[in-house]
Each structure stands twice: as structure tokens, then as C-alpha cells.
Amino acid sequence: MKLLDFLRGERKKTASVAKERLQIIVAHQRSQRDQPDYMPMLERELLEVIRRYVKVEQDAINISLDRDDDCSVLELNVTLPRT
């Protein structure tokens, strides 16, 4: 079996696939870790409002909240389609 794999050109080990997938999902989870509970809702509603005027995809909107010592900045990035 191993020899066959070798001759066919090694298939990708499943463990390294698992690692890559985990690194992405864990990074995503961590970025959401410290955000306030209302963020997902806020994100959804903002998207709805924008979509009322422009046709954008779900992933064309990016919201992040950066906190400094004395203030927070809510950053909203929308990639608008070319008209």
C-alpha cells in the first residue's frame, strides 16, 4: 500500500489537511472571542441594510471591532461590485 502510494506520487497526508483546516477555523474563532455579544446580529442587520441598496455578496462585507484603552473603533468594509 505504502509502495503504491509512493509510486502514484504521495497522496496528501490527512493529518496535514486536518491541521490546515484547524488553523483557519481556530484563527476565526479567536478573532470573535473578545467581541461583544451583539456583533453577529449587528453584522447581519448592517448587511441587510446595505443589500437594500446595493447587490453585494455575504462575504463582501467585513466588520471588525478594534479596542484601544479609551475608545473602540468599529470598522466596516464593503466591497461594492463594479457598476
Partner: peptide, 16 residues
């Protein structure tokens, strides 16, 4: 792990 079909302990430590 040796066969490459299970996450090894360094990978798990690195992720967590």
C-alpha cells in the same frame, strides 16, 4: 501519527 493520518502532538500544541 506515524502514518500521517492522525494530528501529532506538536501540531495540536501549535494550534492551541
Amino acid at each position: 501519527v506515524d502514518d500521517g493520518d492522525m494530528l501529532n502532538l506538536d501540531d495540536i500544541q501549535e494550534i492551541l
